[in-house]
C-alpha cells in the first residue's frame, strides 16, 4: 500500500494550484524514494516535473511502485476542502481504484476523508539529462512573477538575456516595448531579496510569456525561483521547497520566424 502524511498540507495545495491550469491530468508516481510527477501541457510545449522526497513527509510508506492517474481539476477540488494548516494523509491500496485524502486540523478536532477516483492515463515520460547551463539566475519568486505579468500587458514573448552582472527581460508589442533589468545583488541583510547570477557564457533566449505566467503560479511555494538557460535549449524554471523537494518547469524556446 501507499501511505504518506505531510504536516504542512498547505504545501500540497500550493503544488496542485501551481500546475492545475497547465496540465489536465497526470500520473503521480510513488516509490520508496518519494512522490513524483512528470507531465507535458496539452500542446506539448512545456513540461512539469515535481518531486517530493520521502523524507520530506512525516510518515511515508510505499510497498510497491504505484502510478496513480488523476485529473488535476478534481484533485484541486478535493484539496480546496483542506485547511492551509491541516495535515494531509494520502492513502491507496495496491491496485486500488481510489486514493483517500485525510485532512486533520491542527487541534485534531476535525477529521475529514475524501476519496478520489483514479484514472488510467497514458503518459509519455521524457528523460531530462543533467546539464550544465550557460547561465543560472536565482531571483525572488515574487519579482519574477511581477516581471512576467507586467511584460504580458505589452507583448506575447520575452527575451531573457543574462550577462555576468544582470538579467534583462524585454518584450515588444503593438503598443510599444518594455525592458526590465535586475542587477545581481547578493544582499546579506535580506536574503529573501537577493538576486544571484552564475554564468559560464552570456545567453539570450526568447520564450512565450503565457507559459512563464503559468509557471509563476508556483510563487507561493518558495522565496526564490531559479532560471537555468542555455543557448537553443529549454529554460528551466525551478521552485525549491526546502526539505521537501522541487517543482520544475521546462519551456522550449521560440525560434526566429
Amino acid at each position: 500500500m501507499f501511505e504518506a502524511r505531510i504536516a504542512q498540507g498547505g504545501l500540497l495545495k500550493k503544488v496542485v494550484e501551481a500546475i492545475k491550469d497547465l496540465i489536465e491530468d497526470a500520473n503521480f508516481d510513488c516509490n520508496n524514494s518519494g512522490f513524483s510527477l512528470q507531465a507535458m501541457d496539452s500542446s506539448h510545449v512545456s513540461l512539469v516535473a515535481l518531486s517530493l522526497r520521502a523524507d520530506g513527509f512525516e510518515h511515508y510508506r510505499c510497498d510497491r511502485n504505484v502510478s496513480m492517474g488523476m485529473k488535476l481539476a478534481n484533485l484541486s477540488k478535493i484539496l480546496k476542502c483542506a485547511g492551509n494548516e491541516d495535515a494531509i494523509t494520502m492513502k491507496s491500496e495496491d491496485n486500488g481504484d481510489t486514493i483517500t485524502f485525510m485532512f486533520e486540523t491542527p487541534n485534531q478536532e476535525r477529521l475529514s476523508e475524501f476519496d478520489l477516483k483514479l484514472m488510467d492515463i497514458d503518459s509519455e515520460h521524457l528523460g531530462i539529462p543533467e546539464a550544465e547551463y550557460d547561465a543560472t539566475v536565482k531571483l525572488p519568486a515574487g519579482e519574477f512573477q511581477r516581471i512576467v505579468k507586467d511584460l504580458s500587458s505589452i507583448g506575447d514573448t520575452v527575451e531573457i538575456s543574462v550577462t555576468k552582472d544582470a538579467v534583462k527581460f524585454g518584450t515588444t508589442g503593438d503598443i510599444g516595448s518594455a525592458n526590465i533589468m535586475c542587477r545581481q545583488n547578493k544582499s546579506v541583510d535580506k536574503p529573501e531579496e537577493s538576486t544571484e547570477i552564475d554564468i559560464n557564457e552570456p545567453v539570450a533566449l526568447t520564450f512565450a510569456l503565457r507559459y512563464l505566467n503559468s509557471f509563476a503560479k508556483a510563487t507561493p511555494l518558495s522565496t526564490h525561483v531559479v532560471l537555468k538557460l542555455s543557448k537553443d535549449l529549454p529554460i528551466v524554471v525551478e521552485y525549491h521547497v526546502p526539505d521537501v523537494g522541487r517543482l520544475g518547469f521546462y519551456l522550449a524556446p521560440k525560434v526566429e520566424e
Binding site: M40, S43, H44, E124, L126, L233, P234, P253, E257
Partner: peptide, 14 residues
C-alpha cells in the same frame, strides 16, 4: 504559437 517548438523535440522519450 508561431515559432514555438515542442518540448519533446529536446528530451528523448524514456
Amino acid at each position: 504559437l508561431a515559432g514555438q517548438r515542442s518540448i519533446s523535440a529536446f528530451f528523448a522519450a524514456k
